[in-house]
Design a protein around this nucleic acid. Sequence first.
DNA 1: GGTAATCATCAGTCTTACTGACGATCAGTG
DNA 2: CACTGATCGTCAGTAAGACTGATGATTACC
Lengths: 137, 137
Amino acid sequence: MSRRRLGYLFKHAQLRLTRLTGPALEPLGIDGRELAVLTVLDARSPVSQQQAAQELRIDRTTMVAMLDALEGKGLVARRPHPDDRRKNAVELTAHGRDVLTRGAAAVEEAERAFLEPLPEDERRLLRAALDRLASDG
Amino acid sequence: MSRRRLGYLFKHAQLRLTRLTGPALEPLGIDGRELAVLTVLDARSPVSQQQAAQELRIDRTTMVAMLDALEGKGLVARRPHPDDRRKNAVELTAHGRDVLTRGAAAVEEAERAFLEPLPEDERRLLRAALDRLASDG
DNA sequence: GGTAATCATCAGTCTTACTGACGATCAGTG
DNA sequence: CACTGATCGTCAGTAAGACTGATGATTACC
């Protein structure tokens, strides 16, 4: 039985997860946060930067920096939005789509390794529980 | 069903937890990390700074800063270790013990609120699962 | 007794993420 | 149409958290 606080458990679970996903993505030159951005762009493209930021619940200014990085790596392109000249329409490049595909596979693999200590049914339960706990309520 | 990555779920579950524990501890003038230090000192006191740091898996230099803060608030005292003059023997003050007691109660309450979306049996299961996932393996 | 390891500390750095301000642009009201 | 207020992307500055590497003091090894 664990006397640890939930805060401790979350922090160190996340640390262990990062120790697995980090090296898995490192050959692709991105980290987990960047992969999340690529995923959103793939699903919703073209989106404004604000839309993408809201989707991931990150700050608009943080998104600027992340897109700067991703654009610098040639994974993402900003172009002027046809309907609203305040907005950028952000899209994946061909290279970005490729990195997304390979990154997603790498992360799935890392998540499998991460969850390996748990029996199958508990993995599903954990995911469902986290999903409810992570929703702002 | 959740398509979110585990990294996202952990991050935002933790954010929501902090939104609950933070205000709960704020009247006591500490945060969750500091409460964890107080807890270790209470259980193991007197300990060296390194022992306390290892217990919480935080860096030795981070522990220096945290004890500086806690000492400044009068919750903790460093005294020379009787057996080894390189070490500090760190202990709770009377005030520190009091804050620990009230802080622990506040956090228990906040954790209850955090877990409130889950049925009773899933709460236990989550805790057990996190415990295994957080262990470095 | 001399070398290597340990402890606490400090300065510096890095990452992540924020606030607040800005110019440009759009939307709604009258 | 003109004004007001909101929205979008950007930038500068800041803050928290946690690390590295170096240092002085001390201890352990043999």
